[in-house]
């Protein structure tokens, strides 16, 4: 592709309570552009995200950031890395005891020596960016789900991060609000040249915003490429995921019928 990889995942394996959830994951996150990791719930995409932001560090394999393995970062190096990234969690993860503006100001107050007035203006700029100008003084509990996410995004952007990670942007949102959030993410890429990594299970959203798609299934990468490449894929499981059909072999994979009827006699379903 010719672009430099900001983050390179090399053969990552991961376990939750002794169960393996990721198998030999390999991909790179390019500088500038939106990479979308998509798959059904439970395929391991959120686990990959947690590894990328340093919340999960076990499991053989490496994640190279500027050539060094994230899993081996000292606390100092991890703090340095985390100051360059912003994370939007699924629910927004706003701190309940403070207003939206105060939420955005938290990293600025802790990490910089900027004056309160400067920080206040920075918060306003971010609020405006997310269409929340009048809501700075609101408490998180007074906001709708969509607004909470946008507020969470404003806070994730407070320190002008190089890389933005977004966990399930559309979850809990109606299609219109979700599309609005997608538009915002695209704007961030275009106007600020940001590198953005999105984890989602929503097909439309993924194809709407992705420069690069990584399709996952049961802990493995099924396919990776541009949206056009993925759409044209001949891989049966990828097609199944895209077309949202039941198992292509037409056989009842979970054994539902044999359980309910008590025998294997029902056979093929298509």
């Amino acid at each position: 592709m010719g672009r430099s990889s900001l983050i390179e995942v090399c053969g990552l394996n991961s376990y939750y309570h002794k169960r393996q959830v990721l198998f030999d994951i390999r991909f790179g996150i390019q500088d500038t552009g939106i990479t979308v990791i998509m798959g059904v719930s439970g395929c391991g995409k959120t686990t990959i995200l947690r590894h990328l932001i340093g919340l999960k560090r076990t499991g053989p394999g490496e994640i190279l950031v500027d050539g060094r393995d994230l899993g081996k970062f000292s606390e100092r190096e991890m703090q340095g890395y985390r100051r360059r990234i912003g994370v939007l969690f699924q629910s927004g993860a706003l701190f309940n005891s403070m207003t939206v503006s105060e939420n955005i100001a938290v990293p600025l107050k802790v990490h910089t020596r900027l004056a309160s007035e400067t920080i206040h203006i920075m918060a306003l700029i971010k609020l405006n960016l997310l269409g929340l100008t009048e809501f700075g003084g609101y408490m998180p509990s007074q906001l709708s789900g969509g607004m909470r996410k946008r507020a969470g995004l404003a806070r994730a952007l407070a320190m002008d991060p190089e890389i933005l990670f977004v966990d399930e942007p559309s979850s809990g949102l109606d299609p219109i609000t979700a599309a609005g959030l997608d538009r915002l993410i695209l704007e961030l890429r275009d106007a600020l040249g940001m590198t953005i990594v999105v984890v989602t299970h929503e097909l439309e959203s993924a194809f709407r915003i992705a420069d690069r798609l990584i399709v996952m299934d049961r802990g493995r990468i099924l396919a990776a490429g541009s949206p056009e490449e993925i759409r044209a894929s001949h891989n049966a499981r990828v097609r199944q995921f895209l077309e949202r059909t039941s198992d292509p072999r037409g056989v009842d994979p979970s054994g539902y019928l044999s359980r309910i009827v008590g025998s294997e006699t029902m056979g093929s379903e298509s």
């Binding site: 900027l114 400067t118 700029i125």
Partner: peptide, 11 residues
């Protein structure tokens, strides 16, 4: 130039 610079300009 980052957001803090812009905020400073506002002030």
């Amino acid at each position: 130039l980052d957001t803090s610079g812009v905020a400073m300009l506002v002030e």
